[in-house]
Simulated assay, not measured.
Amino acid sequence: MAGPAAALTPEPPVQPEPAFRAAGPADVSAVVALVESAYRGEASRAGWTTEADLLDGQRTDEAGVAEVISRPDSVLLLAESGGDLLACCHIERRPDAAYFGMFSVRPGLQGAGLGRTVLEYAERHAREQWGIDRMEMTVIEQRADLIAWYERRGYRRSGEYQPFPYGDERFGIPLRPDLRFERLVKAL
Rank of each mutant, 00 (worst) to 15 (best):
A2I: 05
L8H: 02
L8R: 14
T9S: 14
E11M: 14
P12Q: 08
P12H: 06
V14K: 13
Q15T: 14
E17N: 08
P18G: 08
A19E: 04
R21V: 00
R21S: 06
R21D: 03
G24V: 10
P25N: 12
P25G: 09
A30D: 07
V31K: 01
A33P: 05
V35W: 00
S37V: 10
Y39G: 13
R45L: 15
T49A: 13
T49D: 04
E51V: 06
E51I: 01
D56W: 01
G57E: 04
G57L: 02
Q58L: 12
Q58M: 09
D61Y: 08
E62G: 10
V68M: 15
V68C: 11
D73R: 11
S74W: 03
A79H: 04
E80I: 08
S81Y: 07
G82D: 02
G82S: 00
G83K: 07
L85N: 06
L86C: 06
L86I: 04
C89L: 12
R94A: 13
A98D: 04
A98K: 01
F100V: 07
F103L: 10
S104A: 15
V105S: 10
R106Y: 02
P107E: 00
G108F: 08
G108P: 03
L109T: 03
L109I: 10
Q110E: 12
A112S: 12
L114S: 02
R116Q: 15
Y121N: 03
A126N: 10
E128Q: 13
Q129L: 00
W130S: 06
G131D: 09
G131Q: 04
I132F: 02
T138N: 14
I140P: 05
E141W: 07
Q142S: 12
L146S: 02
I147M: 12
W149H: 09
Y150A: 05
E151V: 15
E151N: 11
R152L: 11
R153A: 03
R157D: 06
S158Y: 03
Q162P: 00
F164N: 03
P165D: 15
P165Q: 13
Y166D: 08
E169T: 13
E169K: 06
I173E: 10
I173K: 14
R176H: 05
R176Y: 09
D178N: 10
L179F: 06
F181K: 02
V185M: 08
A187H: 09
L188A: 15
L188C: 11
